[in-house]
Design a binder for these strands. Sequence first.
DNA 1: ATCTTTGCAAAGGATTTGCATCACG
DNA 2: CGTGATGCAAATCCTTTGCAAAGAT
Lengths: 131, 131
Amino acid sequence: MATLKYSRQRESIKNYLATTKEHPTADTVYLQMKKEFPNISLGTVYRNLNLLTEIGEVIKIPTPNGGDRFDGRIEPHNHFLCTKCGRLLDLELDMKNIEEVNQMAGTNFDGIIQSSSILFYGECGDCIKKS
Amino acid sequence: MATLKYSRQRESIKNYLATTKEHPTADTVYLQMKKEFPNISLGTVYRNLNLLTEIGEVIKIPTPNGGDRFDGRIEPHNHFLCTKCGRLLDLELDMKNIEEVNQMAGTNFDGIIQSSSILFYGECGDCIKKS
DNA sequence: ATCTTTGCAAAGGATTTGCATCACG
DNA sequence: CGTGATGCAAATCCTTTGCAAAGAT
């Protein structure tokens, strides 16, 4: 693997993802970065998101529709996708519970489970109020 | 919602997904269908996969890389993605456990959780043997 | 006869890649 | 300097869509 070299763009992307509570798509990250680096290109954003994902500083969350979301919170946690408004929210589960789930799953399985990500579906609080 | 009309193509797609143990991408389904309907088009496959997903006869599984996978097993169950070889496998969890997880998640959450899908990551049995 | 589904092809969106240049070490 | 990262644009992959013809009820 090639040696990683510092780049202001990557640093800024990483920092943005670590501080935002949203779960931006690559495009949202791009738009955000443009404020600081007006000439930044989408390609750079994608390259860095993938890089950060590979080295584990960022999580990529696949969703059934639209593009993947990115998340700078790397502690194990899970997500909720509102089937009405499409918002992706954090959903807390105790570490203990997460590990328990991983363990349960591992009992009848001949591979090694390193991690898991749960995507919950349903209707979020806001949408319920509106209906 | 418009009335559903019978189509041999849709029937065949549904049947294929119900019997295969793989978790094919749309393209794999297309290639498979071509054996029976040499003129079938990718558009038809996508339209039917989405339709079947909407009416709940098929499940769409988003993965972090490559296209979505489809699964004709509609009983709640979960999946394991091997980070080495990329295979997507079924992973059994008791219904009881799944519901327990959903319930745990719902306790500190103001929305309604209807379902969940867990994607486990790790190294599958085959890859472990090879290394 | 009416309304749905199909095949085809073109369009669309998301992501990746080649290349010359720029920046870090 | 040497190598990695960037910006730009073109390319690629995956999925959706418009339309006229064919199929289902």
